Amino acid sequence: MDSTPHGAAVTAAGFGVKGPRGWAFRNIDFTAGPGSLIAVQGPSGSGRTGLLLALTGRMKSAAGTAEVGGLPLPKKKAAVRSVTALAHVPGVAELDPALTVGEHLRERALLQGRFGGSLRALLRPRQERRAAARALVDAALSAAGLDLETLPKGIRTSVRDLERLEALRLSVALALIGGPRLLAVDDTDLKLSDDERAAAWRMLHGLAAAGTTVLAVCSEPPEGDADVVLVRTGSQPEPSSPEGAPGTPTATPDAPDATDTADTAAGKGGEAGEAAEGSETAEGGEAGEGSQSGPSGSDGTSSADNTDSTPAGAPATDGHDDEEGAADALAETGRA
């Protein structure tokens, strides 16, 4: 097991996920140290989100090997899920446009306090738990660069009224409340202006510099940035036996953990009353009960080289097959 205090090292060799109609992605090779910023680049349908889900233990791999924080995949998927968090993943970990910023924060803090902390933390006096939750939420907002005072209605602003960059920052802040060693962010630069894209990468660089390993899916990585580990997805050759031959590996996507969709409906049901005791910072209220603070770690540098080679006699494939494989592999996660 990785002894690094916070950020998780990530490695992959010949890593791939396969759906019923083909490969979602394959032949992924890279190495990234703790506290690295990993940019996953590729066109839509090239398996970028599938790679993000597989490296966070939410989807079962079909070929190759990978490790996150010393935990092998897919053997230790549950352990990997416990040290990773998802942000901005449509259909898996996305914001509810009907909720306000404050409701999302209270809900996530409440879930973290109930399921993310130790039993000893749950036995502390309520005021101590609330104070710890407020500190945790404030630290996450600060790390994500989201200033509640600049929002149209402060903490009462609805998600549907947020700008795209503000929504990205909120999603990242919610994920950081759990203190993950690896933060995986999907669609990082989707429909952002040049200035917004630069601001998003500055935020992710800051998180990596603070010790959290960041895995970010993007269309275009920051130019000329030597600190970014670049991983490319796309059409790649068959790594092993021909389609349908004996021994060809297959993979089945895994459903995401309930705790990774903290920005869904937990605060809307029977616990809504208790969640109301959570954070309402703009109105003088308090954050939802929580107990775990995110530790800080050391920076890490790394390099990556995602190369592919064509084995002798391997059949030819095209990008269309890969796109179909990616769509199938994501179907059960709601991303198809």
Score class of each variant (00 low, 15 high):
V89Q: 09
V89Y: 11
V89S: 12
V89L: 10
V89G: 11
V89M: 10
V89N: 10
P90K: 12
P90Y: 10
P90A: 13
P90I: 08
P90D: 15
P90F: 11
G91H: 14
G91T: 10
G91S: 11
G91I: 06
G91A: 12
V92M: 08
V92H: 02
V92D: 03
V92E: 02
V92W: 09
A93D: 07
A93V: 06
A93G: 10
A93P: 06
E94C: 11
E94Y: 11
E94A: 15
E94F: 15
L95T: 03
L95M: 08
L95Q: 01
L95E: 03
L95N: 04
L95G: 03
D96W: 13
D96H: 09
D96S: 12
P97N: 09
P97C: 04
P97E: 15
P97M: 07
A98L: 15
A98Q: 10
A98H: 08
A98N: 05
A98G: 08
A98D: 14
A98V: 15
L99I: 05
L99C: 07
L99D: 12
L99F: 10
L99M: 14
L99A: 14
L99Q: 14
L99E: 13
T100S: 15
T100G: 11
T100Q: 07
V101M: 05
V101S: 03
V101C: 08
V101E: 01
V101A: 07
G102P: 00
G102E: 13
G102H: 06
G102S: 06
E103Y: 06
E103Q: 14
E103P: 09
H104N: 07
H104K: 03
H104D: 10
H104G: 08
H104L: 02
L105G: 04
L105Q: 04
L105M: 10
L105Y: 03
L105E: 04
L105K: 03
L105S: 01
R106T: 05
R106N: 07
R106G: 07
E107T: 15
E107C: 11
E107R: 01
E107L: 09
E107S: 12
E107D: 07
R108N: 10
R108W: 05
R108F: 03
R108V: 13
R108P: 00
L110C: 07
L110I: 03
L110Q: 05
L111V: 05
L111I: 05
L111C: 02
L111Q: 11
Q112V: 15
Q112M: 12
Q112L: 15
Q112A: 14
G113S: 05
G113T: 02
G113L: 09
G113E: 00
R114N: 07
R114H: 13
R114K: 11
R114V: 15
R114I: 11
F115G: 02
F115M: 05
F115V: 03
F115W: 09
G116E: 03
G116D: 04
G116I: 02
G116S: 04
G116H: 04
G116W: 05
G117Q: 01
G117C: 08
G117K: 00
G117L: 00
G117F: 04
S118R: 13
S118L: 01
S118T: 15
L119C: 00
L119S: 01
L119K: 00
L119H: 00
L119M: 02
